[in-house]
Design a protein around this nucleic acid. Structure first.
Length: 675
DNA sequence: GATAAAATGACGCAGATG
DNA sequence: CATCTGCGTCATTTTATC
């Protein structure tokens, strides 16, 4: 926490944006839109997350960090900022009012954003200081300060007002005031934030020390900051003893013009829900449906940061009581993804579900109605987390995950994979027709388009010099979407190669190649697998908890998505029991295990139904219990593409879910012995 | 020429989304 | 309301291998 604060006070968000861009962390729309939508406090939190990500993962960025904290760091950063702004803006006029290009939908590309894996390799300090050529020349201190703030996106009016009020002596103070003003504006605009002057880092450090872990600013500090005329409400609320964050959320929810009574009422309800939650007797076990209906739902909403909800939406949430439906989040980001700003900060795990052992269950999100309610009910009423892997890679993969892992301090695998088709497959760009507007692939499935189909498409398209007529475009696009085809030559489309699928899913190239597996089977195994980056993001919280490694029980292992994810996270695998029916898949995992020089032991089995209490006890006694039980049970009776036997959870294969539950429950019960 | 493996195309619809 | 999506199955045909 402390290092995060230090980093935060050291990096300005602009630097973070640039660093993110330069180091393969995708365009953080999050930060910019965060700035637009909320006050500076939360803005800081968003950047804190990013700093956290950076600090944890990139040694090179840590070096940058050290560089910037050293004596001359502050001025270097300033120079860096200016140079970067010049580079980006071209004409400086754009910077003040416009968003960066990064603040766009995923569909739009970022021209100079590098996504290849090479971008994580470098950075020698040159990346930072080298661009300072265009840096500050001799300008008088005063006007420098003025233009400094103007350059950050504050209005002249505001800057001069603040300078008049507080003088020019303390840049920190000025910035703070500016940010406060900005945050309190009713129609927020895109803005940039600057690094506090770091001449007084010791001072800053000591002032952080007294703060609680959850609040970036203490209440007093905020009251002190909010001295302007248009924030009486916030100040009043805080003087009434409400937490700054509560007050801000209430204001955001109910709007700037809502009355004090309304706000107080809102906060009161939220607090009540929270208190009830804390006081709930442990014996009381909530069914999932009750869970969704109860105040906890409201509490749950309350813990959402940054997710915009219109009042209409809120009503819908309340009325949801009548419906059984378990609504999928939109966007489908679960409790948060590294590349979007909305995230849930806390959740409540039912008593029965609390680990260790930890478990992680996965299946298709769009299962027939009622399936996820059933799954959730069996898995101790834990609320599913629905995530679309399109936020992690260039292909969609809508999946539900039920797990009892903490959700704080997750971090992604680096480098972040490319998230558009063009970034993932740069060579396709040349041949991509303008009327094919896809930027993401659809779900990678087990079957691929045939060669005959691609030939038909070629013939359909090559008759025209210019763009083909609309009906042809529609036919081609439909087929391309259906079969995930990409443009590989003039008028030529093709399905992805197996190694391309491997890469998209986060596996090492050739993970499924060789060892007697056919091409068709490779597609099948890959189509049934995890998206490694997505799963790794969820499992990342284990790294800190188990520095010496974990014992893993992996059911329905497939080609070892969970194992690969943990390995890529740098979590040592001590003992892995892998249960997988398909022999080729077991071979794949086995050879991966050997190639990666694992220190632990891999035990494999072929049928979950044979894994009974005796066998489990025997296994657990040999190495002292499992820390994590992972499994994605068969989806073929749930998946939308199945026209023949979409029978739901009772289907022939999908009913093996109940074996997942059976084994999980056995392990949970046996675990008491080994703890 | 027998056998095995790979490729092909026909097979809708529930449910999310806007 | 129209539009889009989807960890799939199966019988049959084509191609590879011995």
């Amino acid at each position: 926490m402390k290092e995060m604060r230090e980093a935060e006070s050291c990096f300005d968000d602009f630097v973070l944006l640039v660093l993110c861009r330069d180091h393969g962390i995708p365009p953080l729309k999050s930060i910019v839109s965060e700035a637009e939508e909320m006050g500076s406090e939360r803005y800081s939190k968003a950047s804190t997350l990013i700093v956290c990500v950076i600090l944890r993962f990139t040694e090179t960025i840590q070096k940058l960090f050290q560089l910037t904290t050293s004596g001359s760091g502050s001025s270097k950063i300033s120079e860096f900022c200016k140079a970067e702004r010049l580079k980006m803006g071209g004409d400086d006029s754009g910077m003040e009012s416009d968003n960066f290009d990064w603040n766009t939908e995923d569909e739009l590309e970022i021209e100079n954003y590098q996504s290849s894996s090479s971008c994580l390799t470098v950075p020698n300090g040159d990346a930072v200081t080298g661009s300072g050529e265009a840096s500050s020349s001799a300008v008088s201190a005063n006007s420098k300060l003025f233009s400094h703030f103007i350059g950050m996106g504050f209005s002249r009016e505001m800057v001069s007002k603040v300078i008049q009020e507080y003088g020019e002596v303390n840049e920190d103070k000025l910035l703070e005031e500016l940010l406060t003003y900005k945050a309190l504006e009713s129609s927020p605009q895109p803005q940039l934030q600057i690094e506090p002057d770091h001449g007084s880092s010791a001072n800053a450090g000591s002032s952080w020390d007294d703060l609680s872990d959850t609040d970036i600013f203490s209440d007093d500090e905020v009251i002190a900051k909010t001295s302007s005329e248009n924030n009486d409400t916030l100040r009043t609320l805080m003087k009434m003893g409400y937490q700054q964050e509560e007050a801000l959320i209430a204001i955001e929810r109910l709007g700037q013009n809502s009355s004090l009574e309304e706000l107080v009422d809102f906060i009161g309800v939220a607090q009540l829900a929270k208190a009830e939650d804390a006081l709930l007797p442990p014996e009381e076990k909530l069914r999932y449906n009750d869970y969704a209906k109860s105040n906890k739902r409201r509490f749950y909403d309350y813990e959402v940061l940054g997710r915009k909800k219109s009042k209409g939406c809120e009503k819908k949430v309340v009325n949801e009581d009548d419906e059984e439906a378990l609504h999928l989040p939109n966007p489908m980001i679960g409790f948060g993804v590294p590349t979007e700003s909305s995230f849930i900060t806390r959740r409540r795990i039912p008593e029965d579900a609390i680990g260790p052992p930890y478990f992680y269950y996965e299946n298709v999100a769009l299962a027939p109605k009622g399936v996820w309610q059933t799954i959730s009910r069996f898995l101790y009423d834990v609320e599913p987390e629905f995530v679309d892997s399109k936020f992690f890679c260039a292909a969609a993969r809508k999946r539900g995950y039920i797990h009892n892992l903490p959700i704080e301090n997750r971090f992604p695998l680096l480098p972040l994979p490319p998230r558009t088709i063009h970034e993932a497959f740069p060579l396709t760009r040349k041949w991509w027709p303008s009327w094919d507007t896809r930027t993401k692939l659809n779900c990678l499935q087990t079957c691929i388009g045939s060669a005959k189909l691609t030939e038909r498409i070629r013939k359909a398209v090559e008759n025209y010099d210019e763009n083909p007529p609309e009906h042809v475009q529609k036919y081609v696009l439909d087929q391309c979407r259906k079969w995930n085809l990409v443009w590989v030559g003039r008028n030529k489309v093709a399905p992805l190669e197996p190694d391309e699928v491997e890469t998209l899913l986060g596996f090492p190239r050739n993970h499924t190649r060789g060892g007697g597996i056919s091409r068709t089977d490779r597609y099948k195994s890959l189509g049934n697998s995890f998206q490694v980056d997505t799963v790794a993001y969820h499992l990342s919280v284990l790294k800190e908890m188990y520095p010496k490694g974990i014992n893993l029980l992996s059911l329905f292992s497939g080609i070892g998505g969970a194992e690969v994810a943990l390995h890529r996270l740098g979590i040592p695998l001590k003992n892995v029991v892998s249960v997988e029916k398909s022999e080729v898949n077991r071979n794949i995992v086995r050879s991966w295990w050997e190639q990666t020089n694992q220190k632990g032991h891999l035990y494999d089995m072929d049928d979950v139904r044979e894994l009974d209490g005796d066998r489990l006890e025997q296994l657990m006694s040999t190495f002292g219990g499992f820390d994590l039980i992972v499994g994605g049970s068969p989806c073929n009776n749930l998946a939308g593409s199945n026209r023949v036997s979409r029978d739901g959870l009772e289907g022939k294969e999908s009913s093996l879910f109940f074996d997942y539950f059976r084994i999980l429950d056995l392990v949970k019960n046996l675990s008491a012995k080994y703890r």
